[in-house]
């Protein structure tokens, strides 16, 4: 696995929750929040949690301003590319609008250093089946100039998620994997779901850090 993990996907696929979980579980050095689209529920909103876990948060130039929708990107976003010993996760906003931000790093990206992972929740209407996901891969590769290197199954209906939902996501993503040769790197399993099944890739519990429990 290369040292820089860039998360892409349809918006609402759960990239930010996955990014925060990965950053904490894997004790990454940086979480780079490049979400210029969403005003709420961004990974930067848990800056204290990340800090407490030793993860450096790179976000807007206006730091810790949850009330800002100014899409300023910090120049610090390129630091992990230069800091060759570091490991980082990049959290992009959804779809092309988010993926195109990677274009600014064209000169410094070394493809041997990065993973470009597609986070998929098949309960999002736009990524419900194989054809739609293949289409999205195309779109995102076009927008970012990067090649997708792996898939993350994050299929869920939040608190209504059951084992069956994850299994269905597993089936759809396995079909995509077969067609594209892309590995399924992780499957995220909603915290409260009871299951003994083993899904494709590394299986991880998803702890919801961004959403409040009453949401």
């Amino acid at each position: 696995m290369n040292r820089l993990w860039i998360l892409t996907g349809h918006y609402g696929s759960g990239k930010s929750e996955v990014a925060v979980n990965l950053a904490i579980d894997e004790q990454l050095d940086y979480l780079v929040d490049l979400d210029v689209v969403n005003p709420y529920f961004r990974s930067r909103s848990v800056h204290a949690l990340l800090e407490a876990n030793g993860v450096s948060l790179v976000e807007s130039t206006i730091e810790k301003a949850t009330g800002s929708d100014l899409p300023f990107i910090s120049a610090k976003g390129s630091r992990p590319f230069h800091d060759k010993a570091s490991r980082a996760v990049y959290d992009l906003a959804g779809t092309q609008a988010g993926a195109k931000l990677m274009r600014q790093y064209t000169d410094i990206i070394d493809e041997r250093e990065i993973e470009f992972w597609l986070v998929v929740n098949i309960y999002r209407m736009e990524t419900a089946n194989e054809a739609q996901i293949l289409n999205l891969i195309n779109t995102l590769e076009g927008a970012s100039g990067l090649k997708v290197t792996g898939l993350i199954n994050n299929s869920n209906l939040m608190h209504e998620t059951t084992e069956e939902h994850i299994k269905k996501g597993d089936t759809v993503l396995n079909a995509v994997s077969k067609k594209t040769g892309l590995p399924i790197v992780f499957t995220f399993i909603e915290e409260e779901v009871k299951t003994n099944l083993k899904f494709a890739g590394e299986n991880r519990r998803l702890i919801r850090h961004l959403g409040k429990h009453w949401l």
Binding site: G12, N38, P39, Y40, F41, Y123, L157, M158, E160, G211, L215
Partner: peptide, 10 residues
């Protein structure tokens, strides 16, 4: 309110 606009739910 903005939360209902921005939150996700089945």
């Amino acid at each position: 309110d903005g939360l209902i606009g921005q939150m996700m739910e089945p």
